[in-house]
Every structure is written in structure tokens, then in C-alpha cells.
Design a protein around this nucleic acid. Structure first.
Length: 419
RNA sequence: GGAGGAAUCGCAUAAUGGUAUUGCAGCAGUCUUGAAAACUGCCGGGCUUUCGCCUGUGGGGGUUCGAGUCCCUCUUCCUCCGCCA
């Protein structure tokens, strides 16, 4: 979340940012509440100061066995007033918190202003887009080879769930292991295997709640939510903690299943793996010093590109415009893999710098060079999500006789080199 | 699920119901050629030009003039019992 002090000082900048991000938030209502809060605090603090000094007086009178009855009587009234002021303050502070949590992060100065995905800027491209040719789409080829089963997924769980079957399951597992090993060995991340359910405080810490509640699977009986990304547990790993200065940067790499209700997106890209309620993803999360976070973002993107390069899948890197940059992010790059059968780019990764937005929500600090406590910066990127990557692989590595060659780098992870 | 114990600054610790102690670590300074040691200051959050003020003992309530301390409740951790892959 943003610092309330910042919102108070630069309300117009914050308002323009909300517009640029295609979000909505009533900044003026917040400022009215903030004003009310501060004047109430001023009033109540004078009374509390009085109570403190008189209480001390009462203590010393009692120690000397003198009479303090009149002071106690007086303080009884003061305490009642304090209580009623505190009572009127509480709902105001709750409203302020709720409103602040619903204000999006400020975009970075380098982010182009734009309305939608059409205004995103292609930064670079590796490999060429290719024609469909003889290639079948991922649903046809996977049905023919019996490696994915969405019909039975729908029977067992519902629309938008699928089974990986036989060599399809092995191949998925190989892909995950390959990506994790690459990030550990080549990029120096620490491996994590997180819980797939998280509590309210964690979901709030990374910015999913309270605003995106309808996108989450919830288990109200236990107050738990199915994670939409490993970003949630990996970032909240350090919630309410202070990291040592020389510990930074901290880099985690973790696999998780990801769960998304995808409410409101019915009918859009719903074919097979293009949009599912559960998918697998290897996530990268970094905790860094503020002055290094934009350099760390660039490195994060190249860490992800290494995976696509190793798999020899054509891809492009996009810088998202303001309107397409997510709620909590200050700057985001998307990576898209080419799908010959769909004849379009598929989003397979999203790499973002959240600056101190998540750190402030989740209260993650470090001791800076001056020995002071300061919010650090968090970043994360998918490295990568397998479902759409699988679509690209099944198309690119398809042979004319209707089989799939296993990419060279995955062969050591599979017990076969052809499906 | 049941019984008992615990939670105080980054870590560790103290506090007959009278307003949070001390040590370590960290930061700045004095001294030093430099470092160490020693000494001084800072060292949870907020407000304040300064002096200071408010707040803060896992979360939320309550009793009281006054709560780390007493009561209720929730959470987490530890010990044991039960159930379980």
C-alpha cells in the first residue's frame, strides 16, 4: 500500500495514477477521513497526556499515604471522554485502512501511459513467428497422443480443470524440474516448496485482498484461500520480519500449483490450456535494497528468458503500459511465447517490481546502511507458468507424423525423447 | 479433538497493579597512522523547527484513576494424550 503521508502530500499525483492504471479509488473521501482522524487524535492525545501526569501524581500521593480521591474522581471523567473519543476513532481508522488497501501502487516514471494491452511496448524479440503448417493445436495433438484429458477433468472437478496423462504427466514434471534446476544452478536462487493455501493476512500482504476477493478460491470454514501464485507464500515467508542488511538480496525459487477462479473471463481464450483454474508454475521472488530494485528487475527478466532460450521457443518481451500494469506493481514486463496453431502470442510470464508496496502491506523491513529500519523492495516473476508454455512446446516440437520430440534440455529429465 | 505451559525492540532478558530494565548486535562520533579496545550518543511506530508529546509488551475486548502484570476471547509455538497419510 501507499504511505498515507504520501497520499496527503500529493493527492493529485495519486489520483492521476489511479486513472492511468484504469483503477478506481475515492482519494478525496480518504483525505476527509484522514483529516477527521488527525483532529480526533489531537484532541484525545491532550487528554491522554493529562491522564498520564495526574496518574503519576496519584501514585506518588498514595505512596505518601495522602488523599487522592478528588484526582481519581476527575480522572474518571477524563477516562470516559477518552474512551468515547477512541470509540469514534476506531471505525474511522478501519475505513481509512480499507480505502488505502484499495489504492493501486504508483507506476514508475519509465512506464508508458496507455489504456490496454494494445498500448504495451515490445522491448525485444527472440526467434521468428512461424506458420501453422502441418501442426495441430495442442488439444487435437494431446488427444491423439492421449497425454491431456480435459473431459475427465471437467467430470472430476469442473470446467477448466485437466488431467495430465502418462507421458504428458512425466513431461510436465520434467519441465518443472528443469526450470527449477536452471534457476538454482545458473541464477543462484534458493529452492522453496510452499504451502498452497494461505490465510487472509498473507493474501492481504501481497495485494490480492481485499480488492480481488472474487478471483480467489476460498475455504471459509478455515479462513484459508487457495494461492493464485507462489508469490503469496514466498513473499509472506518474511512477513513481519526484519532482514539483515548483508543478507540482501534474498532470492527464492518455488514451484506451486496456482488456483484462479477466472470470474468474468468466460468465453475468452477458454480452449484447453489457454485458460484454466489450476496450473503449475515455477515462481521467482526477490527481496532487495530499494536502490537496486530496477536493476534487479532487468536481471529477473533475463533469468526467465534463459528458460525460453534453452527450450528454443520464440518469444517476445513486452513492457506493459500503465493501464495493463497490475494493481500492486510499479513496473511489469510480460514474456509471451509464440503459438503457431493459434497464430498469436501467449503470455507465459510476468515480471514485476512492487517497490515498497507489498513490503509496506506485509511489513517486511531491513536495516539500511544508516542502521535504520526501512521497507525493502519486492519483485517477482513467473519462471515460468507451464500450461501455456506446454501449448507452445506441443506445437513447436510436433513432427509431421503426429508425434512430439522432447526438447534437448528436457531429455535428461524424461525417460523418453519422443511422445 | 483433550490437558498443561509460553509469547516483552533484530536476538536475549527484567519489571509487589503506579506507566518497559539491562545486555548483545547494528549505526554515528571521540580517541587512533589504521583497526581493536575504551568512552559518548542513537537504536519499535507516529507527531513535532526545538523542548517535548502520544503510542507500543502476539491480536481483540473487559475491570481500574492507572494493566506487561488481573479477567474473557482468539492466534501461534512448546510438552503430553487421542485420531490420522
Amino acid at each position: 500500500m501507499l504511505d498515507v503521508k504520501f497520499i496527503r502530500e500529493y493527492p493529485d499525483v495519486v489520483k492521476q495514477n489511479v486513472i492511468n492504471k484504469n483503477e478506481s479509488a475515492d482519494i478525496d473521501a480518504l483525505l476527509v477521513l484522514d483529516e477527521k482522524r488527525r483532529s480526533l487524535i489531537q484532541e484525545v492525545e491532550v487528554l491522554k497526556g493529562k491522564r498520564n501526569t495526574v496518574s503519576e501524581l496519584i501514585a506518588s500521593l498514595k505512596k505518601n499515604k495522602e488523599d487522592a480521591t478528588s484526582h481519581i474522581e476527575e480522572m474518571r471523567a477524563v477516562s470516559d471522554t477518552i474512551k468515547s473519543l477512541d470509540d469514534s476513532l476506531r471505525p474511522i481508522e478501519e475505513q481509512i485502512e480499507d480505502r488505502v488497501l484499495r489504492i493501486p501502487n504508483m507506476i514508475h516514471a519509465s512506464v508508458p501511459i496507455g489504456k490496454s494491452a494494445a498500448d504495451n511496448v515490445e522491448v525485444r524479440r527472440k526467434g521468428d513467428t512461424i506458420e501453422q503448417g502441418f501442426r495441430k493445436n495442442h488439444l487435437e495433438i494431446s488427444k491423439q497422443l492421449n497425454i491431456l484429458d480435459f473431459e475427465r477433468g471437467a467430470k472430476v472437478s469442473g470446467s477448466g480443470f485437466g488431467f495430465y496423462v502418462g507421458k504428458g504427466a512425466s513431461f510436465e514434471r520434467a519441465l518443472i524440474n528443469f526450470m527449477i534446476d536452471l534457476h538454482l544452478e545458473k541464477h543462484g536462487y534458493t529452492e522453496m516448496l510452499p504451502p498452497f493455501l494461505a490465510n487472509y493476512a498473507s493474501m492481504r500482504g501481497t495485494g490480492q485482498l481485499p480488492k480481488m476477493e472474487e478471483d480467489m478460491y476460498a475455504m471459509p470454514l478455515d479462513g484459508l484461500y487457495a494461492i493464485p501464485t507462489a508469490e503469496v507464500p514466498l513473499t509472506n515467508f518474511h512477513r513481519d520480519e526484519v532482514l539483515a542488511n548483508d543478507q540482501l538480496p534474498v532470492k527464492y525459487c518455488g514451484y506451486s500449483a496456482c488456483f484462479r477462479r477466472e470470474a468474468g473471463s468466460y468465453g475468452k481464450d477458454t480452449k484447453g490450456f489457454l485458460r484454466v483454474h489450476q496450473f503449475n508454475k515455477v515462481e521467482l521472488v526477490k527481496f532487495v535494497k530499494p536502490e537496486t530494485s530496477y536493476d534487479e528487475l532487468e536481471v529477473l527478466v533475463t533469468d526467465v528468458e534463459d528458460v525460453l532460450n534453452a527450450l528454443e521457443i520464440p518469444y517476445r518481451v513486452l513492457q506493459l503500459c500503465s493501464g495493463d500494469t497490475s494493481f500492486s506493481s510499479a513496473k511489469t514486463y510480460d514474456l509471451e511465447a509464440w503459438s503457431p496453431a493459434e497464430q498469436k502470442w501467449l503470455e507465459v510470464s510476468s515480471c514485476s517490481n512492487f517497490e515498497s508496496y507489498q513490503a509496506r502491506r506485509a511489513n517486511i523491513r531491513f536495516r539500511n546502511d544508516q542502521g535504520k529500519l526501512e521497507f525493502l523492495h519486492t519483485l517477482n516473476g513467473s519462471g515460468l507458468a507451464t500450461s501455456r508454455l506446454m501449448v507452445a512446446i506441443l506445437e513447436h516440437y510436433q513432427t509431421e507424423d503426429g508425434h512430439i520430440n522432447v526438447p534437448k534440455v528436457l531429455q535428461p529429465y524424461c525417460r523418453f525423447d519422443r511422445i
